[in-house]
């Protein structure tokens, strides 16, 4: 009963919420009021936007020694998570079968384990930093913690189901993914998409002022 609910209606519902929510929010960025800048530009906007879009992957040299924990843990987490999501054999099989109809080479089992360990390491450390550092403790909201916990749970249930021989564990993983997908568009998890327009806006602004950012 509950199995077919998780595999069926809830799955489609969460997918709908995820895609509709993300599209709506990106839409609200694209279609809400844009202020036209009447000042004479010193430089073109597009190259500035593109430069900032990529340059912000690398932290400023002078600042790095003060933020190396966040930067390193951040990279460890995000790269690990990316590898786990898109290069785990069961995920590729799932996407191939239900959505895409094509596949790509998966990580070997040990590679998956290492990626998952890195993702866990980064996530736990970042989350603890969020709680323990006075700055992010002051800034963080319930939403940030819920996002962290949901990501953790999704990762964890996925790894607990590694043996791929118990449907109850698979369902648990799927259920947590569904919760994650439903929560995604309403939370700061949206940064996975909005960092692009955000960097583009700022980069364009700097570009028209002739500043390299």
């Amino acid at each position: 009963m509950i199995d077919s609910f998780i595999d069926g209606p809830l799955w489609y519902f969460s997918l709908f919420i995820f895609f509709a929510g993300v599209i709506l929010r990106l839409g609200s960025i694209i279609f809400s009021k844009h202020k036209v800048d009447l000042s004479v530009a010193k430089g073109p906007e597009t190259p500035g936007a593109l430069r900032t879009l990529f340059s912000r992957f690398i932290p400023d040299k002078g600042l790095f020694k003060h933020i190396k924990f966040q930067v390193i843990a951040g990279y460890v987490f995000h790269l690990g998570l990316f590898a786990v999501i898109f290069f785990a054999a069961p995920h590729i099989k799932f996407l191939d079968k239900h959505f895409l109809g094509f596949s790509w080479p998966a990580l070997p089992h040990w590679g998956f384990l290492v990626a998952a360990q890195l993702a866990f390491l980064g996530l736990i450390l970042l989350w603890l930093h969020r709680i323990m550092s006075p700055v992010s403790r002051l800034l963080s909201t319930k939403g940030d913690h819920i996002s962290s916990i949901l990501t953790f749970v999704v990762l964890l249930t996925g790894c607990l189901a590694l043996l791929e021989s118990f449907s109850s564990l698979r369902l648990l993983h799927r259920f947590s993914v569904e919760l994650f997908l439903i929560y995604f568009p309403f939370s700061s998890l949206m940064h996975a998409f909005t960092f692009v327009p955000s960097r583009i806006f700022t980069g364009a602004w700097f570009g028209r002022r002739g500043i390299k950012s």
Binding site: L113, A116, Q117, F120, L156, C159, L160, A161, L162, L163, S165, F166, L169
Partner: peptide
């Protein structure tokens, strides 16, 4: 038990 074993080994 299976989950514990996989989790224990992974973490």
């Amino acid at each position: 038990a299976s989950a514990s074993k996989e989790g224990h080994n992974l973490m």
